[in-house]
């Protein structure tokens, strides 16, 4: 088991998540892609923790899971609000900041 395998897997998942965040129009799918990115981080944390032989990586992975749970709750609330106001979850249409 090589450390670098885990790191590359995490990098691949993260990049896929980035693609999803950038390319998806549907708000729910963007949230899912964010979950992918967070999971890639968790894999990194745990792999490094195991590599160094301590449990601190696991502790921080648990914190990341807690934060992700909070994030998805607030994110879903925002998506629901957008849907209620615009009858659509297309992020393209949320462009009030256009210059």
């Amino acid at each position: 088991m090589y450390l670098v395998e885990y790191l590359l897997l995490a990098a691949a998942l993260f990049s896929i998540g980035v693609y999803g965040v950038l390319a998806r129009k549907n708000g729910v799918l963007v949230l899912m892609s964010i979950e992918l990115m967070l999971n890639a981080v968790n894999i990194n944390l745990i792999a490094f923790g195991a590599f160094r032989g301590n449990a601190i990586g696991q502790v921080f992975a648990l914190f990341v899971i807690a934060v992700a749970a909070a994030e998805v709750g607030v994110g879903m609330a925002i998506v629901l609000l957008i849907f209620r106001n615009r009858a659509s979850v297309n992020l393209d249409e949320v462009d009030l900041m256009r210059g």
Binding site: G27, V28, L31, V72, L80
Partner: peptide
């Protein structure tokens, strides 16, 4: 929890 919330979100936004 998270996946269930996301699926609920899918339903609530009538995708």
């Amino acid at each position: 929890a998270v996946v269930v919330i996301l699926l609920f979100g899918t339903m609530l936004t009538r995708a």
